[in-house]
Design a protein around this nucleic acid. Structure first.
Length: 484
RNA sequence: CGCGGGAUAGAGCAGUUGGCAGCUCGCCAGGCCCAUAACCUGGAGGUCGUCGGUUCGAAUCCGACUCCCGCAACCA
């Protein structure tokens, strides 16, 4: 398989200290559409996701639960992995940063950066709140004090940590950006990171004292230190391909398209690229920075616990309805608000009244009039259509869906205008219905990356010789169903 | 003057190079009766955040201002 026929996309790895929320589901769904689209276009696709299981928070929670970090994360990892069936995702790889081969890859990555002279030891002073028994970052402090214990002075703790020579890569990163104008999407995020890099870089800490926090990958050649969670976590993008042992697979699929939330901008578009430059590896193909979701106008926060539960929604509405809502109503790169009322509105207006009703009308008329067909799904035509959709190439999923929905509306108009139910001759009725059946099949084929399960149902229904009405695709919802 | 985004109909949004302000939902009226109280046609509803400038012409370009939001090295 030549490299041109391969495509690799990866999400970020969520930190497993809580259940999946709607924002991460949105990231997975957008990545899935891209993966399925590329696959439909004939590419061999690697689609990676997984869980990030190192670091302090998981260590503390595991300690409290009396479990090893790995055992503590097991049910969380299983829950994230189960999103595959729940959201109807096509990911091929699910990596846990606690996997043995990932830890080995992170160590090899470290050695390469070290060999290149980019890792050095430095005394690092951290602010420590005795009240919380926690290290505090500047952003957590208010007026230089812990907001939870404002009466206590913060202690300064000094420890030796390894640092990564980020500063060395300022110019190489700027050069790379210059030569790769599509590296970061959307462009305003690219501007943001360029400005950040141009302002100057500080080396960052990439290890922690093992005695204080052992939940990390051991630093090669130093028993006292483990890697800071970010350093090893980013390596998952290549360790999932089998790097460094499986050079052939790595070469076949890397570089990736990486997707992430806007909070991850620096890690994904600056720190990780600098690390790759240091290790002598090619940088990612492209990084897509998605916006954030609010839930009913409120910021989603793990600590507030107001994250909308995707499993709950999927139980009520199904994967395709949630996918459709998130893809059409939420702009991919800007912040958006998740509202269950809007989901129900879109479901009724577009899925039940639009697509579902059209399928029911046409299939019912075909069945009642005993009209037979000989249609075949044409994935090739769908791939051509989607590849020519400039909106999809720029990841404007909602616009592609809008254009498909214009076809649905056009079919409904034509059906009403030609009113085959008023005709007597079977040939005349067939002359109206057969082209419509073909258009519906085309619509379903193009819908495959977006609504995979619905698309499959329509395709199998409309490739029968005698198309029958069958079950309603999207039963209309009562707005009151929300609370049910 | 730290960086970035946003403000367009009741709500959610689109408006790529300046050229009659659009889409969806909701609302009103009519039609249809195949279909999931669905479908089709028409209608009401906007000073495009404010002020100024460029132009024959500005939602769009330029300047100033107001208000919201995110980031500022844990976070999808």
């Amino acid at each position: 398989m030549s490299k041109e026929n391969n495509f690799y996309i990866t999400t970020t790895l969520p930190y497993t200290n809580s259940d999946p929320h709607i924002g991460f589901a949105a990231e997975l769904i957008k990545a899935d559409v891209i993966a399925r689209w590329q696959n439909l276009a004939g590419k061999q696709v690697v689609f990676n996701t997984g869980t990030d299981e190192h670091g302090l928070k998981i260590w503390q929670q595991a300690e409290a639960a009396g479990l090893t970090p790995r055992a503590y994360c097991d049910p969380y990892a299983a829950r994230f992995a189960s999103l595959k069936e729940a959201l109807n995702l096509s990911f091929t790889n699910f990596i846990r940063t606690s996997d043995r081969n990932h830890e080995q890859a992170a160590q090899e990555f470290w050695r390469r950066c070290a060999k290149n002279g980019d890792i050095y030891k430095k005394t690092y002073s951290v602010k420590y709140c005795v009240g919380c028994e926690l290290e505090k970052t500047e952003s957590e402090l208010i007026d230089g004090r812990c907001p939870l214990h404002p009466n206590r002075e913060l202690e300064l703790i000094e420890e030796d940590n390894y640092f990564f020579r980020f500063s060395k890569y300022q110019q190489p990163l700027l050069d790379f950006y210059q030569n790769h104008p599509d590296f970061v999407v959307p462009s305003h995020r690219f501007t943001e990171i360029k400005n950040f890099i141009a302002a100057g870089l500080q080396d960052f800490s990439i290890s922690r004292l093992k005695a204080k926090m052992p939940n990390g990958v051991p630093v090669p050649g130093d028993d006292e230190q483990v890697m800071y969670v970010w350093f090893d976590a980013l390596v998952n993008y290549i360790s999932t391909l089998g790097w460094p042992d499986d050079e052939e697979n790595f070469q076949a699929f890397w570089p990736a398209v990486q997707v992430c939330g806007k909070d991850n901008l620096r890690q994904q578009t600056a720190m990780w690229p600098a690390m790759l430059l240091s290790a002598g590896l090619p940088l990612a193909r492209q990084v897509l920075i998605f916006g954030f979701l609010t839930a009913n106008g409120q910021k989603i926060s793990k600590s507030l616990g107001n994250g909308v539960d995707p499993f709950d929604l999927l139980g009520k509405y199904g994967a395709d309805a949630l996918r459709y809502y998130l893809l059409t109503e939420i702009p991919p790169f800007e912040d958006g608000d998740f509202s269950e009322e809007r989901l129900i509105q879109k479901y009724n207006a577009d899925l039940a009244n639009g697509l579902g009703n059209l399928v029911a009308r046409v299939s019912n008329l075909l069945e009642k009039n005993n009209i037979t067909t000989s249609l075949r799904a044409d994935d090739g035509a769908a791939a051509v259509y989607l590849s020519q959709e400039a909106n999809l190439s720029s990841y404007q999923f909602s616009r592609t869906l809008q254009s498909i929905w214009q076809d649905i509306a056009a079919c409904n108009e034509e059906l009403s205008a030609r009113a085959p139910w008023k005709l007597a001759a079977k040939e005349e009725i067939a002359a109206v219905l057969l082209p419509l059946a073909e258009r519906i099949l085309g619509i379903a084929t193009r819908l495959q990356p977006f609504l995979p399960s619905t698309a499959q149902r329509i395709i199998s229904q409309f490739t029968q010789v005698q198309i029958i009405k069958g079950e309603v695709l999207f039963p209309r919802l009562d707005a009151a169903a929300k609370t049910a």
